[in-house]
Amino acid sequence: MPLNIVSLVSVGRHPQSGRERRAEQDGRAVELGMNLEASQSASMTVLHAGRSVEPVLRNYAGMGLPSLEVLELSEQDDAVPSLAQYLKASDADIVLTGVRAESGESSGMVPYLLAEELGWPLVPRIADIVSINNGVAEILLALPRGQRRSLSVPLPFVASVDNAAPAPRQSAYGPGMRASIDASQVTAVTDSAREQWQEAPAKPRPKRLKVVKAKTAADRFKAATAKPQGKAGKVMKNESAQEQAQEIFNLLLEEKVIK
């Protein structure tokens, strides 16, 4: 039986311009799905819960998708019930999502809620699916600073795709415009809790200052008037190469980059 993969995509947001775009992680989820499609002869569905007229969907389609499925929802609707319903009815083996959406609430809860609803394991922040044998997938988790953890998970599962996963392929204009976007009507559930929230453009957060808790006036005085330290770095000009190397090495040890 061929593997069934569903990649969920959302409307991204460019960090600089705020313009709608293909979301970084969702693009990677599609890429991962397409790679599996090629290597495992799987079949892949790309699914979006939202408006089917969304131009951004063309950007996903431009990766070379013949079609996209859309569960027609408005912006106020909760995507999770419709998605869960769709997935229950489908025979998906792997559901791929981004870690967090770039627009809306960005809570990153969708994969967790879907996994809970479906009763499947959730694999967070994956970098790659290395292999799938006998219904068990070997997965690489992305840990901070480029580290990886290997995991084996039985199908079916939900996975969120980290930025460490292979970058999505280029989106081409022609195929993107040609792809068919198949919208299906679903019963929408309005996200009523969210209606009471107030949203505003993000206020810049103040950087935490180094607050000196001094007991005496002298200490406070010192803290207030002390010259900022470490403006100019240390320059070793006349030391021998050995001394210089030792100094550098000490700094590396101090910074704990050498273990």
Binding site: H14, Q16, R21, M63, G64, R169, Q170, S171, A172, P175
Partner: peptide, 22 residues
């Protein structure tokens, strides 16, 4: 570029930027 989506090296990134940020 427009049919194959195969602009080499930084091409894809640059085009994405042009589209998203002008």
């Amino acid at each position: 570029t427009m049919e194959k989506g195969d602009t080499p090296n930084k091409g894809a990134e640059i085009l994405d930027n042009i589209i998203a940020t002008d």
